[in-house]
Simulated scan of single mutants.
Amino acid sequence: MLGFKNFRCARIILSGIEVMHMIAKGQMQTGVDQKRSAAEQFYELAI
Rank of each mutant, 00 (worst) to 15 (best):
A38G: 05
G31F: 06
Q29E: 13
A46G: 03
E44C: 00
L45H: 02
G26Q: 01
Y43R: 12
F7H: 11
C9Y: 14
G31S: 10
A10P: 02
C9E: 04
S15D: 09
I13V: 10
M20P: 03
G16P: 00
A10S: 09
K25T: 01
M22S: 07
I23G: 02
S37P: 06
G31I: 15
K35L: 04
Q29K: 10
I17Y: 09
K35A: 13
I47S: 09
F4V: 03
S37I: 11
Q34D: 10
A38R: 14
A38D: 01
T30V: 11
A38I: 00
I12V: 04
F4E: 01
L2K: 15
E40R: 01
V19Q: 00
S15N: 11
S37V: 10
N6G: 08
A24H: 08
I17K: 02
G3V: 08
I17W: 06
L14F: 03
C9K: 11
I17T: 02
R11V: 04
G26H: 14
L2Q: 02
L2S: 15
A10G: 01
F7P: 06
V19A: 12
K5G: 08
M1Y: 15
V19K: 05
L45T: 07
L14E: 09
K25A: 01
Q41W: 06
A39Y: 09
G16A: 10
F4Y: 12
I23N: 00
Q29R: 12
Q27A: 09
E40K: 12
A38C: 09
I23F: 02
L45M: 05
K35N: 14
